[in-house]
């Protein structure tokens, strides 16, 4: 049941508790209780809209940044990662395998703002040995959703 509820919320976090209860064949009180528990236990960390910023007038610049770091004797990657994660400009941050260590998604209002963040904040942190900034040019898919509207095609409305 817990997994079914999470599966439904992953797809659409705005589903009403009533609707979820019907879909998992349970009652509203039980579903509400499970969701509250998931929230209390921080399994569910939040609910956010998936927004196509290209359709908005206000400009937003996003960049993926690869960061190489020198792991510390105590704390490994975690201390530096935590320092970086606290910056409001950082949307997401992962420790990754491969050619670099941390991957950040950073956002700002202009190219200069993001560039400024990288040169004056990020690159100067002790332990950060190198960065590579990739500005995002176009978004095709986010959170499992395609960002291009497919053309409608003729489908039957009724068939045996």
């Amino acid at each position: 049941m817990k997994n079914n509820i999470l599966r439904l919320l992953r797809k659409n976090a705005r589903l009403s508790v009533e609707n979820i209860a019907e879909q998992v064949s349970s009652d509203v009180a039980t579903v509400q209780k499970i969701i509250s528990e998931l929230e209390d236990e921080n399994v569910i960390r939040g609910y956010q809209a998936v927004i196509d910023e290209s359709k908005l007038s206000e400009l937003q610049v996003k960049a993926i940044i690869e960061v190489h770091i020198q792991p510390q004797r105590d704390g490994g990657f975690d201390n530096i990662a935590r320092r970086l994660a606290n910056f409001a400009e950082v949307n997401s941050l992962y420790l990754v395998s491969g050619g670099y260590d941390l991957q950040l998604e950073v956002q700002g209002e202009s190219l200069q703002e993001v560039a400024g963040f990288v040169s004056s904040k990020l690159a100067t942190i002790e332990g950060v040995t190198a960065t590579a900034t990739h500005f995002i040019l176009k978004k095709y898919k986010e959170a499992g959703r395609l960002f291009e509207d497919g053309a409608e095609y003729e489908r039957l409305k009724v068939s045996p």
Binding site: R155, L156, K157, V158, S159
Partner: peptide, 8 residues
């Protein structure tokens, strides 16, 4: 039309 009539 909201269709519940489609057999596919």
């Amino acid at each position: 039309v909201i269709s519940l009539g489609i057999g596919e």
